[in-house]
Amino acid sequence: MKIIIDSDASPVKGIVIQEAKKRGLDVILVASFAHFSNKVHPSHVETVYVDSEKEAADYKIMQLAQRSDVLITQDYGLASMALLKGVTVLHHKGFQYDQYNIERLLESRYLSAQMRKSGKRTKGPKPFTQADAQTFQTLLIEVLDLATKNPSQPQ
């Protein structure tokens, strides 16, 4: 089991790295070269850089992800593909994607895109807060504890 982070815009990398270290889990940060960083991470963290082309990170993540893994992403399309692969997928705002909410989220994304195409304005995401970070950390701990106690069971 490993944790993969769609890391270009993820505000929870530090939380994930910290919780993974406590459990001896590896973390893979997937980022585009446009977000290159010289930051040195602990030995259990690997950074994989991909082209800055649209969807390049998604393709790499899907190549790396396996059934027992956990993925952190805010990309609904990537989340839907990973769910089909049996990956546990979390959003940094502290909710877990599942077969029930992903369809609604994808539909909402589609409708917002249609509105923008027709010239209407839509609201962007709300700012990430400390409360969001705490909610995410609580969910991550729950998911990791369950997975490490029951490694053969997808979440």
Rank of each mutant, 00 (worst) to 15 (best):
M1V: 05
K2E: 08
S10N: 07
S10F: 00
P11M: 04
G14E: 07
I15D: 13
V16Y: 08
V16T: 05
I17G: 01
Q18C: 04
A20T: 06
K21N: 03
K22E: 15
G24P: 10
D26E: 13
I28S: 14
L29A: 07
A31S: 13
S32Q: 11
A34D: 06
A34N: 01
A34Y: 10
A34C: 09
A34Q: 01
H35D: 09
F36T: 09
S37G: 15
V40H: 15
V40A: 06
S43G: 12
H44Y: 07
V45A: 13
V45T: 05
E46F: 07
Y49W: 06
Y49Q: 03
Y49N: 02
Y49C: 01
E53S: 07
K54F: 05
A56W: 00
D58S: 02
Y59M: 03
K60E: 08
M62H: 14
L64V: 00
A65F: 00
A65W: 04
Q66P: 07
R67V: 03
S68R: 08
L71P: 03
Q74I: 00
Q74N: 01
A79V: 14
A82M: 10
A82C: 14
L83F: 04
L84I: 04
L84A: 11
V87S: 07
T88Y: 03
D98K: 11
Y100A: 11
Y100E: 14
I102T: 10
E103K: 13
R104F: 15
A113V: 13
A113T: 10
R116Q: 03
S118K: 15
K120T: 10
K120E: 08
R121A: 13
G124L: 07
P125T: 15
K126D: 14
T129A: 11
T129C: 08
T129M: 05
Q130V: 11
Q130L: 13
A131G: 11
D132Q: 10
A133N: 06
T138K: 15
I141C: 03
I141L: 07
E142I: 05
L144Y: 01
L146N: 04
A147Q: 11
T148Q: 09
K149L: 15
P151S: 08
P151F: 06
S152Y: 06
Q155K: 08
